[in-house]
Every structure is written in C-alpha cells, then in structure tokens.
C-alpha cells in the first residue's frame, strides 16, 4: 500500500496515496482550497462534485470527490457552483393549498413536461436516485411517489446541470417533498403543546434547583 500513484486534478498532475479519496488528495496540495469542499467525506453537502475520467476510458462521469477513491491515471475536473438565472420563485406559503398542487407545480416548473428521456440526470446522480422516473411521475401527477424518490437527495445540482431542458429535477423533488410536509404534517402533540404555550402555561422556572446528579 505504500506505492504512490498519480492523478490529474484540474490539469495538474499530483501524487496520490492509494485508498485515499480525490478530495483528500487535493487537500494535500500547497494551495488553500476555497471551493468545492465542505463536509470532508460525509457525502452530504454536495460541494465536491467533479467530472472523473478513468485511465483508458473515453467518457467522464460525475462524482463526489470525497467519496471517490483515487486510481492511477485518473483525470479529475471540479465543477464550479453557480446559481442558475432561470430559477422559478415560489414561497413556502404558496404550497399550502393541496387542491392546487398540480396547476401550481406546472406553473412553477413549466419545463417538467419537456423531458426527452435522455437519462442524463440518472447518470449524473451520485446518490443513484432514479431522477428521470421521478420527473415522469411528477409530470403525470403522482406527486407522493415522485417526492419519495428524492428522500436521499443532497442537492448537489448535478442533475440540474445535466438536463438539456432546464428542468432542475432536484429542485422539483425538493418542492414536492416540501409541499407534502407543509400540507400534511400536523402532529397532535405539537398542536397541543403550542396551544398550551399560547395560553401562557408551561413557563420555565429558571431557579428550580435541580440536584447535581452524580452516578
């Protein structure tokens, strides 16, 4: 395990230790990283997205650098994060009326109907979410089933980058999940507690002397 391999990161060839991730290899360089780095390996922040081409292969794949192990001859290119300018604005408040769910969705994401079934989003997803199926379900009005597919989405926006029709699938998925919670989640215990507090009950006595418990 002590031999060193070489990979290319953004055009610069660097030494790498087998078993390490692309991200850790990049961190060992002599310039401070100011982007494409976040949770350092947990795989939840989606900032270290990159294109990876393995030695001898023609095509490049999208990956999270923190979860991809280095291989000799790998070429890596990090993908900048930017905010696309075709965002459709909505407020959480707009999602409250479940009876308007279908027209509301079409209005907010009109591109949804344009899916060409190219599967680019499926290939892009580092979490292996069946993104295209989710869009098809959403377009056909099966909102709950569509939302459920995006449960593990980390919002890395790779499917949004991949979509030639500007559908922004991960944002559709999040929109549907949010609508679900906003419309349906009314836990009884929470309602009762809020009502008790609104009546002025359950104020905290900050002087209550709790004995120090020593086990």
């Amino acid at each position: 395990m002590s031999e060193t391999i070489r990979i290319s990161i953004d055009g610069k060839v660097v030494d790498a230790t087998p078993g390490n991730s692309i991200l850790h290899t990049r961190l060992e360089g002599d310039t401070p990283l100011t982007a494409n780095i976040g949770c350092m390996g947990q795989g939840v922040c989606g900032s270290c997205r990159c294109l990876v081409r393995k030695a001898g292969e023609r095509s490049a794949e999208t990956r999270l650098a923190c979860e991809t192990t280095v291989e000799d001859g790998m070429q890596v290119s990090f993908i900048d994060y930017y905010l696309p300018n075709h965002v459709h604005h909505y407020r959480p408040h707009d999602l409250r009326d479940g009876w308007q769910a279908l027209p509301q969705l079409q209005q907010t994401f009109p591109e949804l109907a344009h899916c060409r079934h190219c599967s680019g989003c499926d290939r892009a997803c580092p979490r292996h979410i069946p993104v295209q199926q989710g869009m098809a379900l959403a377009a056909s009005g099966q909102l709950e089933a569509a939302a459920a597919l995006f449960d593990a989405c980390i919002m890395c926006n790779l499917c949004t980058l991949a979509c030639p029709e500007n559908i922004r699938p991960n944002h559709v998925g999040l929109y549907l999940r949010r609508a679900q919670a906003i419309q349906n989640l009314r836990p009884g215990d929470l309602l009762r507690r809020l009502e008790q507090q609104a009546r002025g009950e359950l104020a905290i006595n900050t002087r209550s002397d709790t004995p120090r418990s020593e086990a």
Binding site: P92, L95, L174, R177, R178, A179, Q180, A181, I182, L185, P187, L190
Partner: peptide, 8 residues
C-alpha cells in the same frame, strides 16, 4: 420548520 417544508 414544518411550515417551510421540513419532514420529521
């Protein structure tokens, strides 16, 4: 959080 669309 629920009003913003968070699940529990």
């Amino acid at each position: 959080l629920i009003e913003l669309g968070m699940h529990f």
